[in-house]
Design a protein around this nucleic acid. Structure first.
Lengths: 256, 256
DNA sequence: CGGGAAGTTGAAGAGCGTCAAAAGTAGTGG
DNA sequence: CCACTACTTTTGACGCTCTTCAACTTCCCG
């Protein structure tokens, strides 16, 4: 986050034309990726930045969906609640992920910061106007939605048909891929969310998740530097333990 | 299906201009809903009709995604397999539902006919060309994808956090709403898919699904005319048993 | 009718949840 | 800087829901 502020500062100092977006680390990903300089400038006119402290909510289920967000840095959780308080975390979001797709102008889920969070906020109405001028933005949105749909289907397979071990293995595997894609390949992966968050994402309890972590450590699959820093020691075995395709097929990227 | 053929026949007889789509029962729903007469005519030029017998596959996971389909009549199941054969039915599709959204030109799931099936088939490439001319078609696609995403999230809540009873209650509830929306309100609901299909959709076993049906019958919640024809006797109780919002909130419609 | 698939029912077992307590970690103020 | 508190994580014992395995019944289609 500190780095982003420096970049923003640099952008503003270098002249009026260089919009905050131009120096954005997310530029090239998400919806911004399909825009040229002129279009980015127009986008940045309707953009504002939002930051959240860990635990703070971006919005709640049933809120009017007035904005679309792109995550610049940090990790967020998206979840839904049942009447009696049971929680399902439908996904974790990271840098360049889109938040706020909604039908009928109402968010169907809540979103909270896991770590400190920096986001770009776009008013839906103004974005809609831009879409009319730049249809390829809407096409990009459809691509993103299609990706998320594929990821959602993978998650359904996980929830409905995998064992606790396979669930955690799949989760760690995706987290690892994600880290490697953004930062370069390398050692330990950071697990920003709590055991409870992970449990509510995998359809398990905190205790079961913790037990699986311990088991993975005991069989030499991972090393637990701290509860939130994991090193994968046997990558092949982890892949195998996900229970997914025998071959090394590509999993879907979006929304973890 | 017999009825559709009659409609098509009527359309063809009445003149060259009246395309098959114009008389389609699905017209007004799905992607076709946002098109005017001229646009429908252009769409029908690239449309072909496909019919499948029960159990036949429309396509398999990993196939090249060359077509997009809209279901005219019947019921289809969409599923994914794990390496060892475990199956997850991610959704059931009915009249007016869209099949074939895919990223990277590859289907991420398989689709099979549950009942006899009639579909409209659109070649992706040609549809893409139409999108460039009619951006509102793409907008409609985004709407549909957003809907399906919301439905997928509801399904994740079901799979990860609901009991067997709540799962079946939710399933029957959605099936009931769906029937009431398409045909008028009324008595018994048809459950075209097998217990095994339902089980693989709810993350349960055939036996568990069967036991829940029996239990629902014994407590006077439903009447089982046959295994595939259910009458809901206590609608309020069914709603309550879904475990979802206390209030009578709208569930998401797409992809069951 | 008859044979095979689909559905139902029962008994036993496993995996994960629940409850409880201990150990580790982090944040706060003296 | 350390102690105190509160929370998160881990570990253990036990129980329950759903699965597994098996037998029986019903339905459907030739």
């Amino acid at each position: 986050m500190a780095q982003d502020n420096i970049l923003d500062l640099a952008a503003r100092r270098s002249g009026v034309d260089l919009s905050p977006c131009a120096a954005c680390p997310v530029r090239g990903l998400s919806i911004c990726g399909v825009l040229d300089d002129e279009q980015i400038r127009r986008l940045s006119d309707i953009t504002s930045e939002v930051t959240l402290a860990p635990g703070q909510a971006l919005f709640y289920e049933q809120d009017a969906a007035e904005h679309l967000y792109v995550i610049k840095t940090g990790c967020a959780r998206v979840y839904k609640l049942l009447a009696d308080g049971r929680r399902m975390v439908t996904g974790f979001l990271f840098t360049s992920d889109l938040v706020g797709l909604a039908e009928a102008g109402i968010y169907a889920y809540s979103c909270e910061a896991v770590t400190g969070l920096a986001l770009c906020r776009f008013p839906r109405a103004k974005l809609q106007t831009m879409f009319e001028q730049y249809p390829h933005m809407e096409r990009r949105m459809l691509e993103i939605a299609t990706n998320e749909l594929a990821a959602a289907q993978d998650q359904m397979v996980l929830l409905g048909r995998k064992t606790a071990q396979e669930k955690l293995a799949s989760f760690l595997y995706l987290l690892m891929l994600r880290i490697e894609r953004h930062s370069g390949k390398g050692g330990s992966i950071t697990v920003p969310m709590s055991r409870g968050d992970i449990a509510d994402h995998l359809g398990l309890t905190t205790e079961s998740v913790s037990r699986c972590f311990t088991q993975f450590r005991k069989i030499g699959l991972i090393k637990l530097d701290t509860a939130h820093s994991v090193t994968v020691l046997d990558r092949a075995k982890l892949t195998e333990m996900t229970g997914s395709e025998d071959d090394g097929f590509e999993p879907h990227s979006a929304a973890l």
